[in-house]
Design a protein around this nucleic acid. Structure first.
Lengths: 219, 219
DNA sequence: ACCTGAACACCGTTCAAGT
DNA sequence: ACCTGAACACCGTTCAAGT
């Protein structure tokens, strides 16, 4: 917030009080923070290597010592965001019903999508580029898997508290995830602008709940 | 298909047999065709103004006489695609049940999304750029509205043939559209790779049908 | 009048040169 | 040893110059 825009040289962080010279970890962190800030402020087009370097207090050349390329920076940002979302989902209360839970997840998803939705394009490009070996790609993939698991756990628990269960088909979770994502994207892109977005999220959550759960069979 | 790759000068189309010199319509068409072909062959990164111009048999400068900028070309492509999708939806059979209809729409949507999904990013950037007046943006918006209407009509009719009706809430259509879009995106991005994509589409179509229709109340 | 393509102001990325 | 930033090969866009 009070970060200097035209700071001269390296603004020392709250680390062990000295120079950042040679500190790979700190520099990586600052680079990521700078990239995230630029993305928030000016959108995708404001995110250039030169401006990231300036804001992070490094040089363009040095950035390439910590990241393979620009895509790699996005990937790292995306990964951190998914990890955060996973924590948020895991922390959601289970005792207010499946619909309320799903609505909350849609909300979270819309927030993340608003910031990093464009990332999915980058992600797809990266996958297409045949360098699946890339660590950052594996990281995003793994984090995504953990996110999916967190959603499954949360929904299962919330359903149980209502005396309901998830349907048994394999496609139930992918469908729920896709549906929530689609609704979140719609909200962010403001399609259905004639609709109150809370009302839309609420209806969608209820509809998805109807679609993926059923009342528990008597034991 | 048999289009010349290194054609010299202007390859005359099936128009009135003469030069294309000064023919704005034809040049616009060729530019769009070239852009679509490049997009299909090399993805987003292959789509440069220089290569579009070369392939279309024009110059970079002339392209800017028919399109405001690169974004405008995408917009026109997107618009044509939505119009085609609308026709496809309108032509879908109504007598095989809502689920089959929805599955077919998801299929169509996945095909379109695979080619132009990235477009949604461009679209959002364009909207953000405050030049809502832009004709190409209005066109896409209007075409989108007509697509939505076509889906509504198709689903309503298919439901009626099964003795069902759409639920009455305003959010029903946006939810259905978002859900189908989300599922289509998942299929294209190959999330849920462990699942057969037909099975996934089928389950999703059935789930969405459950969520948005109910049996018709006795008259 | 219509069209071209060199020129401009960028971009991501590299690597010789500095400290 | 570590870091910088000019240089390279692009990009979208414009506009003087050609026909």
């Amino acid at each position: 917030m009070a970060e200097r825009e035209h700071g001269y040289g390296v603004a020392v962080g709250e680390s062990s009080g000295g120079s950042i010279y040679g500190d790979a970890g700190a520099r990586r962190r600052r680079t990521l923070d700078a990239a995230a800030a630029l993305l928030d402020e000016g959108g995708y087009s404001a995110l250039t290597i030169r401006s990231v370097a300036k804001r992070a207090g490094t040089s363009t050349g040095l950035i390439y010592q910590y990241f393979a390329d620009k895509q790699d920076i996005f990937m790292a940002l995306l990964d951190e965001n998914i990890v955060e979302s996973t924590k948020a989902v895991a922390a959601l209360p289970r005792d207010r019903g499946v619909t309320a839970l799903v609505a909350a997840i849609i909300d979270e998803s819309a927030r993340r999508w608003g910031r990093l939705g464009r990332m999915s394009q980058v992600w797809r490009d990266a996958e297409g580029a045949a360098d699946m070996e890339r660590e950052s790609l594996r990281a995003v993939h793994d984090s995504g898997t953990r996110y999916d698991e967190a959603v499954l756990e949360a929904v299962t628990e919330a359903a149980a508290k209502e005396g309901r269960v998830l349907r048994g088909e394999t496609a139930v979770l992918p469908f729920l995830l896709s549906g929530m994502q689609g609704v979140a994207a719609s909200i962010v892109n403001n399609w259905a602008s004639y609709l109150d977005s809370d009302e839309f999220a609420q209806f969608s959550a209820a509809a998805l709940t109807r679609a993926v759960t059923r009342t528990e069979p008597a034991p």
